[in-house]
C-alpha cells in the first residue's frame, strides 16, 4: 500500500524474519500514562470479498465487550487491519500488556503454595470475569492458566476469548497440541455444549491453584475422559449424552473418589464448590454466578 513509502522503508518486515517457532512481540509503554500495550497479529486469508464476515463479526463483538471496561477482562485497545496481499490481511490487535499469566504465577508461588485467601481472591475475580462473559453470551471455550493474566497487583484478567473464529486456522496449525487438560467431558465427547464448559475449566484451574500442578493430564480425548472418570466416577447411563459416538461402555466402571485425595488442601466448603464445578452433567454444573455466591467465598479465611 501507499503508506509504506513514508514510514519504514529502512525496516525489514519482522513477521517474515520471526516466523519461526519463537518470534518476537512488540510491546510499548505510553510515556504519558505509563501504561503498557502489546501487539498480537493474526493473518487472515481473504478472497475477493475481503475479510471473512466471521472475523469482522468477532472483532465487532470484542469491541462491544470492550465498552464495558470490565476489570477482569484484558483490555483490547484497538484493532488495525492492513492489507498484505490480495489474499491476506493482517489484523493487529492492540492489547493492554500484563507481565504474567496464571501459569507463571503458580510456578513462582513459594513452596507451601498459595494461601487460601489468595486462592479465594483469584477465584472470585476469575468467576467475576466469567460471569461477565457469560451474561454477554460469550463463551471462553479455552480457559487455562496460560490465558488468565495476573497483574503485578494481583488483578486477574481473562484473555483470549472470542478470538476463536479469527484464530481458528492458527490453532489448527500450531505444532503444539492444544491442551486437553481443561476440557469438559461434553467437549471431549463431542457433544453439544455451552457456558458450562468454562465452569469445568475453572474447576480444573481451582484445583490446580492448590496443587500447583494440573488435575487431569490426559494425552488424548479418551485418556482425558478416563482420568476424569477415575476421580468423579463413571457417570450413569442416564447421564451419558445421547448425541455422541463414544459409548459409555468404552470406560470401565468407577465410583467417585474423595476429591480431597487429589486436592488435600481443600476444606469442606472448597471441596463442595470444586465438585459442583466438576459435575459431569453440564446442566447440573454450577453457573459462574452461583459459584460466586458459594459459601467458600463467604467464610473467613481462618476456618477454611
Amino acid at each position: 500500500m501507499a503508506m509504506t513509502q513514508e514510514g519504514g522503508v529502512q525496516y525489514e518486515p519482522v513477521a517474515e524474519i520471526g516466523g519461526g517457532a519463537y518470534g518476537t512481540v512488540y510491546k510499548a509503554r505510553d510515556t504519558q500514562s505509563g501504561q503498557f500495550v502489546a501487539l498480537k497479529s493474526v493473518r487472515v486469508q481473504t478472497d475477493q470479498e475481503g475479510l471473512p464476515l466471521s472475523t469482522v463479526r468477532e472483532v465487532a463483538l470484542l469491541k462491544r465487550l470492550e465498552q464495558f471496561d470490565h476489570p477482569n477482562i484484558v483490555k483490547l485497545m484497538d484493532v488495525c487491519a492492513t492489507l498484505r496481499t490480495d489474499q491476506e490481511t493482517k489484523v493487529t490487535l492492540v492489547f493492554e500488556h500484563v507481565d504474567q499469566d496464571l501459569k507463571t504465577y503458580l510456578e513462582k508461588a513459594p513452596a507451601p503454595g498459595l494461601p487460601v485467601s489468595r486462592i479465594k481472591d483469584l477465584m472470585q475475580q476469575l468467576l467475576c470475569g466469567l460471569s461477565f462473559l457469560h451474561s454477554n453470551r460469550v463463551l471462553h471455550r479455552d480457559l487455562k492458566p496460560e490465558n488468565i493474566l495476573v497483574t503485578s497487583r494481583g488483578q486477574v484478567k481473562l484473555a483470549d476469548f472470542g478470538l476463536a473464529r479469527i484464530y481458528s486456522c492458527h490453532m489448527a496449525l500450531t505444532p503444539v497440541v492444544v491442551t486437553l487438560w481443561y476440557r469438559s467431558p461434553e467437549v471431549l465427547l463431542q457433544s453439544t455444549y455451552a457456558t458450562p464448559v468454562d465452569i469445568w475449566s475453572t474447576g480444573c484451574i481451582f484445583a490446580e491453584m492448590f496443587r500447583r500442578k494440573p488435575l487431569f493430564c490426559g494425552e488424548s480425548e479418551v485418556d482425558q475422559l478416563t482420568k476424569i472418570f477415575s476421580v468423579i466416577g463413571l457417570p450413569s447411563e442416564e447421564e451419558w449424552p445421547t448425541d455422541v459416538t463414544l459409548s459409555r461402555r468404552n470406560f470401565s466402571p468407577q465410583s467417585p473418589q474423595p476429591i480431597t485425595d487429589y486436592v488435600p488442601e481443600l476444606r469442606e466448603d472448597g471441596a463442595d464448590l470444586l465438585l459442583k464445578m466438576l459435575t459431569f452433567d453440564p446442566l447440573r454444573r454450577i453457573s459462574a454466578l452461583k459459584a460466586q455466591e458459594h459459601r467458600f467465598f463467604s467464610e473467613h479465611t481462618g476456618n477454611s
Binding site: M1, M3, T4, G7, G8, Y11, E12, P13, V14, A15, G18, G19, Y22, G23, T24, V25, Y26, K27, A28, R29, D30, T31, Q32, V37, A38, L39, K40, S41, V42, R43, V74, T82, R84, K90, F95, H97, V98, D99, Q100, D101, K103, T104, E146, N147, L149, A159, D160, I166, Y167, C169, H170, M171, L173
Partner: peptide, 29 residues
C-alpha cells in the same frame, strides 16, 4: 504494515515471545 515503530508517545520495544505470556504471541501463520 511493516511492523516498525515510529517516534511518538509510545516507546516501542521488540521482545522475545518467551518474555511475554503465551497469549500475546502472534498467530501469524
Amino acid at each position: 504494515e511493516n511492523n516498525s515503530p515510529l517516534p511518538g508517545n509510545y516507546e516501542w520495544e521488540e521482545v522475545g515471545a518467551r518474555c511475554v505470556p503465551d497469549f500475546y504471541r502472534d498467530s501469524g501463520r
